[in-house]
Design a protein around this nucleic acid. Structure first.
Length: 502
RNA sequence: UCCCCGAUAGCUCAACUGGUAGAGCGAGCGGCUGUUAACCGCUAGGUCGUAGGUUCGAAUCCUACUCGGGGAGCCA
């Protein structure tokens, strides 16, 4: 059966031929003499025309009562037609219904996020989720291709682990035959072992964080890719990271322009993402945050928000007046839909207006020594049109394995990469401490149990070399590329704080 | 753990600030149409998140709780 089917994406090569497609009813407009069925098959959408005179009467009757997401195969001649979604349509002569569906819960109208998450098993079929899924596929492929083409060896690091990368406290505990174990939150430490075997390695898989974070940037299970390279300096790492991210962006632009458009992504901005990216030290970043320029920037932003709020309010008021007058039903419907959108925009802008002074205060009171907060990162990334590297964070704010900077012992050789347009951090990485005595001192300083780290210290005892790497969050990257506000839409089955739906 | 917002029909929202719960979509039936989130008519559908309280009267006001959303901390 499968081999007899033509995929909708290849209809363009079959104009004039009679083909059979298999899919699901995306939209149905039944009529007395003609039925318009928009069908999706996972590769695209196609409008199928069923005329009463060309199919058996019983079949026509059945097709006219098909609900959304009914499954079927349709046979007919392919023809090009500009009025049709996708540009091609099928003049149906035969059809086979597999499952007539009624009461499909997700309608073409607006739905709330809670409802859609509870119906994620069905929502995956929607155009939006489908587009994000296609882009995710490209991103994942690009990640693998980049490292494979650049001499990296894939190493699969364990998901169940007894060791901890950074501070504990945010890990999922597992009862491992009555022994304590965790779900991995990074493959880095294992990857360092492998880097001293293969030179350049990467791992790619799910990672788990039990952080109590309910924000648009957090999932408890997410996918992370981590390269680790021997004989590397911090500038080397930045170069790898900017080439890597630029490659992903380029691939998505090449392969998913249609999906990006559907999703409303900022394609022009993405086209600017080419090396080199901007480079700031933590100290420079902190100077920016506390500068008058930043206060002015935020004040200007606040004015912008207020202006926008006023505009939205004016629009709402105008529409509300219009609804009270004598107008056609279809116009009334449109206004209702617009009002819902506008009210949600309004709520969002009000949140921004509320947060702006808080963020300004946090930025102005920023003290050298602390980690950059989420809002601080947002402010910096908003000021640039390309990703920004922030390097050399204070040693005290960072993990024990990061290499102390020989020129300034107060900082480490690490970096974060902030995506532009205020999305924030998508990469975190560092050069690792490769000197035995220094690493030992740091482990003791943190009060970690030395016996757990003997193997890690061995890497500094036997053929230690300068090495380092970074981790890129796949869902955050996809959210940035697609303009999706929340990363939970960027994975098929999101795991969020205290919540596993299916 | 803390702060802000919310919960009314299957879905998205109203109910003009205390006076008998409405609309659209969706669903069902019928009609009509090369239709584009089509259109027209009819039908079905609600203990207003839960528990108390104030009141002649509560979806509306108060308290607590539950659930959800956004944010802080932390982070990819």
């Amino acid at each position: 059966m499968l081999n007899d089917l033509t995929r909708i994406c290849s209809l363009k090569d079959n104009v004039g031929k009679t083909v059979t497609i298999g899919g699901w009813v995306y939209h149905s407009r039944p009529g007395g003499k003609v039925i318009f069925l928009v069908v999706r098959d996972g590769s695209g959408l196609c409008q199928c025309i069923i005329e009463k005179t060309t199919v058996p009467e019983e079949l026509f009757r059945q097709l006219s009562h098909l609900g959304m997401e009914s499954s079927l195969t349709l046979t007919g001649a392919v023809r090009a037609d500009g009025r049709s979604v996708g540009g091609y349509e099928i003049a149906v002569t035969d059809a086979k219904i597999f499952c007539p569906t009624q009461d499909y819960p997700i309608t073409p109208k607006a739905h709330g996020i809670d409802f859609l998450l509870k119906n994620r098993h069905l929502h995956l079929r929607s155009q939006r989720q489908w587009g994000i899924g296609k882009i995710r596929h490209t991103v994942v492929n690009a990640i693998r291709q980049f490292f494979n083409d650049n001499g990296f060896t894939l190493v699969d690091t364990p998901i169940l682990t007894g060791i901890v990368g950074e501070e504990a406290g945010s890990l999922f505990n597992v009862d491992y035959f009555e022994m304590p174990a965790f779900l991995t939150q990074t493959g880095q430490l294992h990857l360092e072992c492998a880097a001293l075997s293969f030179g350049k390695v990467y791992c790619f898989g799910p990672t788990f964080r039990a952080e109590k974070s309910k924000t648009r940037r957090h999932l408890t299970e997410f996918w992370m890719v981590e390269p680790e390279v021997a004989f590397v300096t911090l500038p080397d790492l930045l170069e790898i990271a900017e080439n890597f991210v630029s490659f992903i962006v380029k691939q998505v632009l090449e392969k998913n322009e249609e999906e990006l458009k559907t999703l409303g992504a900022d394609i022009e901005s993405l086209k600017k993402i080419t090396p080199p990216f901007y480079r700031l030290t933590y100290t420079q970043a902190s100077e920016i945050l506390t500068s008058q320029k930043t206060q002015d920037f935020l004040a200007a932003q606040l004015d912008e928000f207020k202006k926008l709020k006023q505009e939205i309010e004016n629009k709402i008021a105008a529409l509300e007046i219009e609804t009270k007058g004598q107008i056609k039903q279809w116009r009334q419907d449109k206004i209702t839909a617009e009002l819902i959108d506008l009210r949600s925009d309004l709520a969002e802008i009000e949140t921004k207006i509320e947060n702006n002074p808080k963020h300004a205060k946090l930025a102005s009171e920023f003290k050298w020594g602390g980690d950059l907060g989420g809002s601080d990162e947002t402010i910096i990334s908003l000021m640039y049109d390309k990703p920004v590297f922030v390097t050399h964070y204070p040693r005290d704010a960072k993990a024990f394995y990061m290499k102390q900077d020989p020129e300034n012992p107060k900082v480490v050789q690490n970096f974060d990469m902030l995506a532009p347009a205020g999305f924030g951090e998508i990469i975190g990485g560092s050069v690792r401490e490769d000197i035995y005595e220094k690493l030992l001192a740091r482990i003791n300083e943190e009060g970690y149990k030395l016996e757990n780290y003997q193997w890690y210290l061995d890497l500094r005892r036997y053929g230690s070399v300068p090495h380092g790497g970074f981790g890129l969050g796949v869902e955050r990257t996809i959210a940035w590329l697609t303009g999706e506000k929340h990363i939970r839409q960027c994975i098929a089955f999101p795991r969020m704080m205290d919540k596993i739906l299916i």
